[in-house]
Design a protein around this nucleic acid. Structure first.
Length: 562
RNA sequence: CGGAGUGUAGCUCAGUUUGGCAGAGCGCUGCCUUCGGGAGGCAGAGGCCGCCGGUUCAAAUCCGGCCACUCCGACCA
């Protein structure tokens, strides 16, 4: 690729509307341009990266028995109505009509279409298991696109779907896909974690997410430093090892004028926050429902939403609903005397002599004890785990890091095969609904996640397998030197003939400009062709930011292939 | 959708408070000098000041409406 003839519009300054490193650097290094909110054009260098990432993904999947297909991006509404997702999904599903007024959607994912394909073409258990994938554009009308290509509306994803007659073959494929994802991220030289995940609304079985670790990640991951436990904090179980001590104090009502938060209660009474509980009222199917947490803990909304009779998705009660159900304002709620269902988090349930709201505005209670003063029958896990909490499998304290979710694998069970009547005949001639698995990995998101994890103050640091090129050749002042010109042209054509990807900076720019752009773009191998070294018959070779060495021009290809 | 902010040259941004010739730096074109880490000089090109309407002798600037983009929140295979 000749720099001068390609379209590589590098920028000296960061565009004003880019905030995070991957967005800034992909723009500055000339890999992408933004068209609109959540919509991006990929320029030549960017397309190279996508193709490299796709190649790694394809190789790891096909060697594990998955076959590539390509399904339509625009899909008829009928299929989505069959699975009922037309009704269930909100405005993130972009719907449109054609000239005949028929309804369609832009596909965010392809379960319906692949299941339809399967039922129309597979009818015997002899054809199972079947594992298909595609790499295709997706569209999700995100409420708020952000973080550049990390959360865009239109994006490229590899999505795969497998069909199975029994658990055994399903488990084997699930494990193979798990291994494929780990292999992909390993080849891309990324620091990543596979974690237990919440399957969301898609399925109900096992689910794992693959996260690239980065400070800008949207997800928090909990993992034990010593053991194998790793989970999304949304999913991580919070266990409590302490036992409840005996009560020592009497229940006492305290006047606490103006105290409406745990922080102000702690300050006002000069007490330990760990001796307090907070009570949160959420909407329930029959009546509001109270959730009790230790003062320093945070509610895990996914856990709370799974409690019986809690509405899904979780909604906090309004001030009016609280006044109606409890009889006080938001800052004075407590579990004692409530006539609505009360769920107590495990950690709150082991407290004795604690402080809480009195359900009377302006007053709190001290010396409160479970069983004696208020029932603690519904002891549940509803809090977010914190740094230092014990891992639920006993493997030591948890650390919490941030990650970018690049892959997600699910067990779909028979949800789609059943709702779309995609049955096959088993060996006994009985029609059965196959088990399905679903495996996604974001191509464009992965490209951004790489930059997010691998950059420094001067630019990107591409892993070899995702780099827009293997080698960056800079010819310095070629217009003044016949020798520089012919040598760099020779290196370029030698590499092309040897199948090595080269970005050849043949522009008539000053050396400083070329060096700065090379640092920014971040291709791992660099060869500088200039008069200085050519006087000794050599060119300068450097691996990323390592030491420079002088090598024979004719030796470049051999070195890169070594 | 709620809250905050920004829209002026390809990019970064002044100018808007107090209405009066459309600006700077970088980038781009040409010439000269320089020539291994974003050079210097000279001469240029480049604008629907987001859009529509209003006020005014006069609007980038004031008023009304709309749109786009960014950030915070709710949402998220």
């Amino acid at each position: 690729m000749r720099f001068s003839q390609s379209l590589i519009p590098t920028l000296r300054e960061a565009p004003a509307n880019a905030e995070i490193p991957s967005h800034v650097l992909l723009l500055r290094a000339g890999l992408i341009r933004q068209l609109g909110s959540g919509l991006f054009t990929w320029l030549p260098l960017g397309v190279n990266v996508l193709q490299k990432v796709e190649r790694v993904v394809r190789e790891e999947l096909t060697k594990r028995g998955a076959y590539e297909i390509l399904m339509p991006f625009v899909q008829p509404a009928e299929l989505w109505k069959e699975s009922e997702r037309w009704q269930v999904m909100g405005p993130e599903l972009l719907r449109l009509a054609d000239r005949h007024d028929n309804e369609y959607c832009l596909s965010p994912t392809h379960e319906e279409v692949v299941t339809d394909l399967f039922r129309n073409n597979v009818s015997s258990y002899r054809q199972l298991p079947c594992n298909l994938f595609q790499i295709n554009t997706k569209f999700r009308d995100e409420i708020r696109p952000r973080f550049g290509v990390l959360r865009s509306r239109e994006f490229i994803m590899k999505d795969g779907y497998s069909f199975h007659l029994d658990e055994e073959t399903f488990d084997a494929t699930y494990q193979a896909m798990y291994d494929a994802y780990a292999a992909i991220l390993t080849r891309l030289d990324l620091d990543f974690r596979a974690v237990e995940a919440d399957p969301g609304l898609i399925g109900d079985g096992d689910s794992h997410e693959f996260h690239v670790l980065a400070n800008t990640g949207e997800d928090a991951l909990a993992f034990s430093q010593d053991g194998d436990y790793a989970a999304n904090v949304e999913r991580a179980e919070a266990i409590t090892e302490e036992l409840r001590p005996d009560s020592k104090k009497d229940l006492t009502k305290l006047a606490t004028p103006g105290v409406t938060s745990i922080e102000s209660l702690v300050d006002f009474l000069e007490i330990d926050i760990v001796s307090t509980v907070k009570t949160i009222i959420v909407e329930g199917k029959d009546s509001p429902i109270a959730l009790v947490l230790r003062g320093d803990h945070e509610l895990n909304e996914l856990k709370a939403a799974r409690l019986p009779n809690v509405v899904q998705p979780l909604r906090f009660a309004t001030e009016e609903q609280v006044l109606d159900a409890v009889g006080c304002k938001l800052g004075s709620i407590g579990p004692v005397g409530l006539e609505i269902p009360v769920y107590v988090d495990r950690a709150a349930g082991v407290l004795a002599d604690f402080y809480c709201g009195s359900n009377e505005t302006g007053f709190h209670l001290s010396g409160v004890n479970w069983d004696r003063d208020v029932s603690c029958d519904n002891n549940v896990d509803i809090r977010r785990v914190q740094e230092g909490d014990p891992a639920p499998d006993g493997s030591g304290p948890l650390s919490i890091v941030r990650g970018i979710e690049v892959g997600h694998i699910f067990q779909l069970g028979t949800k789609y095969s059943r709702s779309m009547q995609a049955s096959v005949q088993d060996a006994n001639g009985v029609n059965v609904f196959p088990l399905m698995g679903c495996y996604g990995i974001g191509i464009t998101r992965l490209a951004a996640a790489i930059v997010e994890q691998r950059h420094d103050e001067i630019g990107i640091d591409w892993p070899t397998e995702a780099s827009p090129a293997t080698l960056h050749v800079l010819s310095l002042n070629a217009e003044r030197s016949e020798l520089v010109r012919t040598t760099s042209n020779q290196i370029y054509s030698d590499c092309m003939n040897a199948g090595i990807d080269v970005l050849y900076d043949d522009r008539p720019e000053r050396p400083g400009v070329k060096f700065a752009d090379a640092d920014l773009i971040g291709i791992p191998h660099r060869v500088v062709v200039g008069e200085r070294a050519l006087n000794e018959g050599k060119v300068e070779y450097r691996y990323r930011r390592g030491e420079t060495s002088l090598v024979e021009p004719s030796d470049i290809v051999r070195r890169l292939n070594a």
